[in-house]
Simulated scan of single mutants.
Amino acid sequence: MRWWRLPFSGEPYRRTLFLLLSVPLAVWALADRGAAQRRAAGALLESEPAPTRLRGLAAVPLDLVTLVVAGYCWTGVLLNVAYPIRPLLGMDGEYRDAWGGPTLAGAWAVHALGGVGFWLLVPWILRGYAALWRRFFVVPAG
């Protein structure tokens, strides 16, 4: 896949959904021996881990780190593209000293440009985390 097509495909959004669900699924693996985690990984990552309680629990540290990274990345994209909504979220709304200021249009343009650039980068970051998850927790067939 060409590098610029990835953000326009469904792949990064399926990975994001799996990475957001991975912590509860890993904890639930203690009860169902990883069956739900296996189904979710099969549907969203196109690879299925072996169903075991230990494998599900071992995924928790990586899942927590991934959850923080994915949350930070997508929040950064949203807050930069939708720069004017920051005061509604309790953030500083002063744009005169912001990058692109002293006008709101300039500050929004500069932040939106950064947000779009970050949006093009985030799918590749999440692709790396998904590959790491598969490498650690999916047993190769054979």
Rank of each mutant, 00 (worst) to 15 (best):
L88F: 08
L89T: 01
Y83W: 14
P87Q: 07
V77C: 07
G90Q: 13
G101C: 04
R96N: 14
G106I: 02
L88H: 07
G106P: 04
D97E: 10
G76A: 10
A98H: 08
M91T: 01
D92R: 12
G76C: 11
G100R: 05
A98W: 04
L79R: 09
W108P: 00
G76T: 12
G101Y: 05
G100H: 08
L78P: 09
L89D: 02
L89S: 01
Y95L: 03
G93K: 04
L79I: 10
G101R: 03
T103L: 08
D92W: 05
R96K: 05
P84W: 08
L88M: 15
A98M: 04
G90N: 13
G100V: 07
T103V: 02
V81Q: 08
R96S: 14
Y95D: 02
A109F: 04
P102G: 09
V77P: 15
A82M: 11
W108K: 07
R86E: 12
N80A: 10
G106Q: 02
P102V: 01
Y83D: 08
E94P: 00
L79M: 13
L104Y: 07
D92F: 03
Y95I: 00
G100N: 05
A107Q: 12
L78F: 13
Y83F: 12
R96Y: 07
L79T: 13
W108Q: 14
E94K: 06
Y83S: 04
L78A: 15
V81C: 10
V81Y: 06
V77M: 09
A82I: 00
A105V: 11
A98V: 01
G106T: 07
Y95A: 01
R96I: 08
T103A: 09
V77E: 12
L79C: 12
L89W: 01
G90A: 11
G101P: 06
L104V: 12
